[in-house]
Amino acid sequence: MDTPDHSQKSASPAKDPPVTDSPSPRPSPPGQAASDRAMDQALDWLIRLQCASEQDTQAFEAWLEADPANARAYVEAEAVWNGAPLRQAAGQLHQVQRRSLRSRIRPHWKPLATAAVLLVGIFTVGNLPVRLQADHLTVVGERQRVQLDDGSKVLLNTNSAFASDLRDNRQVARLLQGEAYFEVPGGAQPPLELQAGPLRASVRDTDFAVRYLNGEAQVRVQRGDVDLQASSDQRIRLSAGDSISVGPNGFGQRGRLDAQKDLAWVQGRLVFENCPLSQVLAELRRYYPGWIINGNEQLANVAVTGNYRLDQPLETLRALAHITSAQLHEYPALVILN
Rank of each mutant, 00 (worst) to 15 (best):
Q50E: 15
S202V: 09
I292S: 05
Q229N: 14
V172W: 05
L132Q: 13
E183V: 12
L310F: 00
Q234I: 03
Q97T: 02
A321M: 13
D311H: 12
D242R: 04
L299I: 01
Q312K: 14
G187F: 05
S100A: 13
L175N: 05
N274C: 11
F123Q: 00
D135R: 10
V246K: 08
W265R: 06
N274R: 14
D207F: 07
R104N: 02
S325G: 04
P4W: 11
P111T: 00
I236G: 09
G121H: 11
L334T: 14
Q279A: 14
V203Y: 04
L334M: 15
R211H: 10
D233N: 14
D16L: 08
A230G: 08
E330D: 04
V335R: 10
S12I: 04
E216Y: 12
L284V: 02
D21F: 04
Q195S: 12
Q88T: 07
V139L: 15
V139E: 15
G215V: 00
P332V: 01
S152W: 09
F182C: 05
D242G: 09
Q95A: 08
A14M: 10
S239W: 01
F251M: 11
L270V: 01
F251R: 11
P332T: 07
L156E: 00
A52G: 03
D44P: 01
R200A: 09
D2V: 12
L284Q: 00
R254D: 09
R99F: 07
E54N: 14
D16G: 02
I105E: 08
V302D: 14
A71H: 05
C275Q: 14
Q171K: 00
G91M: 07
E330K: 04
G83L: 02
W109D: 10
Q327V: 12
P107G: 03
A264S: 11
A59W: 05
V302P: 01
Q58N: 07
N127L: 10
A230L: 02
D233P: 12
G247N: 10
V335N: 06
N127Q: 15
V302Y: 12
R26L: 14
L228M: 03
R286T: 08
S10Q: 08
A180S: 06
G255F: 08
D150G: 08
P276L: 11
T324Q: 03
Q218L: 13
R211Y: 04
S278K: 10
Q177S: 13
R145L: 05
S160Q: 08
S232Q: 15
G178S: 06
R269W: 02
H94R: 15
